[in-house]
Amino acid sequence: MMDIIDLKKKAAEIRIRLFQMIHNAKAGHTGGSLSNTDILTVLYYHTMRHNPQEPKWVERDRFIASKGHSVESLWCILADLGYFPKSELETFSQFGTRLIGHPNNKVPGIEMNTGALGHGLPISVGMALAGKRDHKDYRVFCLMGDGEQAEGSIWEAAMSASHYKLDNLVGIIDRNSLQISGNTENVMGLDPLDKKWEAFGWHVVSIDGNDIVSLMETFNSIPYTEGKPTLIIANTVKGKGVSFAENAIGWHHRVPSDEELALAIKELTEQIESLVSKEGQPHE
């Protein structure tokens, strides 16, 4: 299990890889992958119980990327952990590849195909209910987008999870406030998002979704209420980690130029070097 400094370094390394991968493929969803990188880094390197050598291990925690278009960070993490060779990242979005632009369950470590928004949480409810009925203690984590909250199937699943008292289910909303057509509050207003989920019977926690320490502490405290599913509103910055991409709607699925790739690598490398210089000092 990694400590705080190592997790921050790993998140920066993953951001470099996903930027390189999107540049090489000339395709991808850059902004959302950058915003969810910290969430996935803490889940896979700190919180979740899983085994790259045995992807179908019955006791594993399950992860569903319901916002499947932001898969690039997930591909990079699965490769880094050894679910498949890192060299395969070079085939991302190329003809015949397994690493398509959405999660593909032909790849070890992927529980289900996702892409059509609103499908991940209903499937996660089924997985969590199966765990309860099989007397297993695994947990199910489902990452959703904030624009995805406009899908009716999300709210049907939310009601079902509460009805079945699925405290082994954790919903996470990547709340970066931007979707492909603009600010979420202009496209389809969500606020008060916390009150809506609470009204559906969930325990709701709002955190800084780009803060490694907050993510660690929050995931370590689950379940917050026995008999209730947990919903984490992870307030993030779209394009996080790359200054010229942060909070820029154009980076929803923009491909970086050669110059932008070089600038991003420089920024992220400097972040890593700053963290390395802190090693050996008292951790936060």
Rank of each mutant, 00 (worst) to 15 (best):
I5H: 08
L7T: 06
A11N: 07
I14T: 11
I16L: 05
Q20S: 12
N24V: 00
G28K: 02
G28A: 09
G31T: 08
S33Q: 02
L34K: 01
T37F: 12
D38S: 13
I39F: 12
L40E: 13
T41I: 06
L43A: 11
Y45A: 01
H46G: 02
M48K: 01
Q53T: 11
D61M: 08
D61Q: 12
F63Y: 14
F63K: 01
H69K: 05
L81D: 07
G82I: 01
Y83M: 02
K86C: 05
K86Q: 14
L89P: 10
T91Y: 09
T91W: 08
T97G: 06
L99Q: 04
L99W: 05
P103M: 00
I110T: 07
I110K: 04
L117F: 10
H119L: 05
H119F: 05
H119M: 07
M127L: 15
A130H: 14
K132W: 09
K132R: 14
K132L: 09
K136C: 06
D137K: 13
F141T: 03
L143M: 13
G145L: 01
G147M: 03
Q149V: 00
W155I: 00
A157E: 03
Y164N: 06
L166A: 07
N176G: 11
S177F: 15
I180N: 08
N186P: 00
G189N: 12
L190F: 10
L190V: 07
P192L: 03
K196F: 08
K196N: 11
E198R: 14
F200M: 01
H203N: 04
S206H: 06
D211V: 02
T225N: 06
I232F: 05
K238L: 13
S243N: 14
H253D: 12
P256F: 08
D258Y: 11
L263I: 10
A264D: 04
E267G: 05
L268G: 11
I272F: 10
L275D: 01
G280P: 08
